[in-house]
Computed example of a mutant assay.
Amino acid sequence: MSAQVELSPRELEIAQSYAGGATYQKIAETLCIAPSTVRTHLATIYRKLEVSSKQELATRLSGEVPEPRNQSEMTAVISELALSLEEAISREKALSEVLRIIGAAKGNLDAVMPLILGHALELCDAEYGILFEYGQNGKFHATFTLGIPSDFKTWFEDKGWFAVSPETGLGRMDAQREVINIFDVKSEAIYKTNDPLRHATADLGGARSFVAIPMLAADDLVGAFALYRQTVRPFSDDATRLAQLFAAQSVIALENARMIKTMQDAKA
């Protein structure tokens, strides 16, 4: 039986989009549904077509009939999809909570940013976090921190706006505009140099594993969302995706605050 016959029109639409390279988020936006709903449909599609990967799905949609799977293989596939669905639901709950925090703060960054950082630290299992602002002169400023060791915080306060070298996590993130996930800050060659940021991060902050997420408004870098662990425990892909969510919502909070301030200044 062909995939077109086995799937409902909605399932077929989702299957073709996903096999064609569309992300859960893109499919959700196109169909005006939640990403978790996309995952639920995909779980049903995978079960109906007896596939376990995007590549197998594309092959099945092309008309090829796969080799029969035994029950244990299908059980493993279904279990993996169930776990993925739970992760998607957790991310949606996190997003809803962050949006609630932003809405309740009414543009008050001093109120909203510690709450966002606190939520991120809890869900991503990190010891402390920093929201760096990025200036037009290519410098960074540790504007909001939570849980940061006092000596490391004092170091940032003394620095104010500071430049970073290209080999640091922030420097690489600035150049690449991509997530920088560092396994161990002490294992990289830059730690053996006299780079002040890396030494402060490791020696004053006690950081070992670190992830920096670029905060982008359109294509412009406006800051960085950074999380730190004080043991060598690299951030997983799931933790990184959550950190990206918090970074994106922090951009929204910053933009909201600026818009509200502009309106207030206009009324003054």
Rank of each mutant, 00 (worst) to 15 (best):
residue 1 M to L: 14
residue 4 Q to T: 15
residue 6 E to S: 10
residue 10 R to P: 00
residue 12 L to A: 12
residue 13 E to T: 13
residue 14 I to S: 09
residue 14 I to G: 10
residue 15 A to Y: 10
residue 18 Y to T: 11
residue 26 K to S: 12
residue 27 I to V: 06
residue 36 S to L: 06
residue 47 R to F: 07
residue 48 K to P: 03
residue 49 L to I: 08
residue 50 E to F: 04
residue 53 S to H: 11
residue 53 S to I: 11
residue 54 K to C: 14
residue 56 E to F: 13
residue 56 E to A: 15
residue 59 T to W: 14
residue 59 T to K: 15
residue 65 V to Y: 07
residue 65 V to W: 08
residue 69 R to G: 01
residue 73 E to M: 05
residue 74 M to V: 07
residue 74 M to K: 12
residue 77 V to G: 04
residue 77 V to T: 15
residue 85 L to G: 05
residue 88 A to Y: 02
residue 91 R to M: 11
residue 92 E to M: 07
residue 96 S to F: 06
residue 99 L to A: 05
residue 99 L to P: 06
residue 100 R to I: 03
residue 100 R to M: 09
residue 100 R to E: 11
residue 107 G to L: 02
residue 112 V to A: 11
residue 113 M to G: 03
residue 113 M to S: 04
residue 115 L to G: 03
residue 116 I to N: 04
residue 122 E to N: 10
residue 123 L to I: 05
residue 128 Y to Q: 04
residue 129 G to N: 01
residue 129 G to L: 01
residue 133 E to I: 00
residue 144 F to W: 15
residue 145 T to C: 14
residue 153 K to F: 07
residue 156 F to A: 08
residue 156 F to M: 07
residue 161 W to H: 10
residue 164 V to R: 10
residue 167 E to G: 03
residue 168 T to Q: 10
residue 175 A to N: 08
residue 175 A to Q: 10
residue 182 I to F: 03
residue 188 E to K: 08
residue 196 P to V: 07
residue 198 R to T: 15
residue 201 T to A: 00
residue 201 T to H: 00
residue 205 G to D: 04
residue 207 A to W: 06
residue 211 V to F: 08
residue 212 A to G: 12
residue 212 A to D: 08
residue 217 A to D: 06
residue 222 V to R: 13
residue 227 L to G: 02
residue 231 T to P: 00
residue 233 R to K: 12
residue 234 P to W: 01
residue 238 D to C: 01
residue 238 D to H: 09
residue 244 Q to H: 05
residue 246 F to D: 01
residue 253 A to G: 03
residue 257 A to L: 00
residue 257 A to I: 01
residue 264 Q to E: 15
residue 265 D to M: 09
residue 266 A to P: 00
residue 266 A to N: 11
